[in-house]
Design a protein around this nucleic acid. Structure first.
Lengths: 237, 237
DNA sequence: CGGGCACTTGATAGTAATCAAGTCCGGTGG
DNA sequence: CCACCGGACTTGATTACTATCAAGTGCCCG
């Protein structure tokens, strides 16, 4: 375990807490106060930030990098539930009571996180009730997203599922370019498959045929150029 | 529209609000106060309480009966997301801001609901912060359940999915008997299929074979006797 | 007792998982 | 800078399974 704990000195001048959506309403002074409650930690690609079933008593906020939240079934199949990136948090259940995590979390790349102890965060919420509302709002958004995922996995064709995930990634990680949107994929083919409940071969095949039809263009293995957004949306319904 | 609005007079003496989990911490006096903020409404089986995309500004609590929350895909397939029964609520997103509902809600039987306007509920939360925490706790539970559903639909075999839903219903709606647990099914075969992303024929077949194997016994179409809970749990993994 | 609807059961076909080779890409070391 | 190596990805062949299509059957209610 070489995850070094260190103070916020390294980024205090940048007011790192301000990059996190739940603190956006705070002014500079308040942010400095928040920063003092925060412990930072770094993880390398592949390291576990949290394992399924682990009991913790703090809230973890991603400050830099990306992580995946996943569950492993008995047969060894992985289901990815969330991709958390800069500004996202997890462990919110711990704010209410110490509880076993429903999923594991693993770094997809070098990742820096801010950790706030439950008690300190609760005091923060008492002082700035807006933060509690913001957390609740984000939980509602997360519910919406999961509800849509369940619908996609329950009723949509495989093509629609692949289109869905590409559009989701385009919105989250896409950058506009002259020809279309360039998506930096946070996951490998296998990861994408585990995100939408398919096998890597099926994802590979579907993406190839989407390329043949001119909807997308694969740039290496980690980027995709989205050429025909409308066609993808149409394939969803 | 023959849904008659009426005051809480009809059930005031029963302190109906006390049957709702988010108000369990309140004493008799406080409950009476809450009851005055509530509007009641009745729905017959099959009536819509809320349609997908509708914008409302209140929280709806089920006081008696059962409803299903569902989404309809473009091809006309239905995905059931939740079964809400006595004590459950929906419309929580409205507490934050007026927003389109992500799902429709339909009564599965004669259903009575309590409706609280957003503004009144927000004042209630300010006066009794515990209520806000309780709402957040239930949202977290709902997230856990959906996360498990996504895992089930993404990684589990069809047998495991059917077992999952039977165990879920057994916990929620089951009554112990001498031979095992008797489940009052809230949904038809087609409803169950739409809850776990299968067709009614597949559900029918799987349940028949589970009966052949002595795991369950079907009593008419609306009840199931769960004989071998362990076998079901084992089939999930 | 009769009718309709939900459910069951059967046959067939379509589709994705699986099994099995290749191929490509990125990184490493000479 | 180039050649090599390994892991990720692609593609192909086959199998397994569930959706679909199509009759029946039985349950529940009037």
């Amino acid at each position: 375990m070489d995850n070094s704990l260190y103070t916020c000195d390294s980024c205090q001048h940048k007011l790192c807490a301000g990059r996190v959506s739940i603190f956006t309403s705070l002014n500079r002074e308040e942010l400095t106060k928040v920063a003092k409650l925060i412990v930072h930690k770094k993880y390398k690609k592949g390291e576990l930030l949290l394992y399924e079933g682990e009991v913790r008593n703090d809230l973890i906020i991603v400050n830099k990098g990306q992580v995946k939240a996943f569950k492993n079934s008995a047969e060894g199949r992985e289901q990815i539930l969330y991709i958390f990136s800069e500004g996202d948090f997890f462990g919110e259940k711990n704010l209410l009571r110490d509880q076993a995590s429903n999923y594991g979390v693993e770094a997809l790349e070098e990742t820096h996180v801010c950790i706030i102890h439950k008690d300190k965060f609760q005091k923060l919420v008492q002082e700035y009730p807006y933060i509690g509302l913001k957390v609740m709002e984000i939980l509602c958004q997360r519910l919406d997203r999961l509800e849509n995922t369940v619908e996609t996995m329950g009723t949509r064709t495989v093509d629609a599922r692949v289109s869905s995930v590409l559009l989701e990634f385009a919105d989250k990680f896409g950058k506009p370019s002259t020809q279309g949107t360039i998506i930096d994929l946070p996951l490998s083919r296998e990861g994408i498959a585990n995100y939408i409940g398919l096998t890597r071969e099926t994802v590979s095949r579907k993406m190839s045929s989407m390329q043949d039809e001119g909807m997308i263009e694969m740039i290496g293995n980690k980027k995709i150029l989205l050429l025909d957004r409308l066609a993808l949306e149409k394939s969803i319904g």
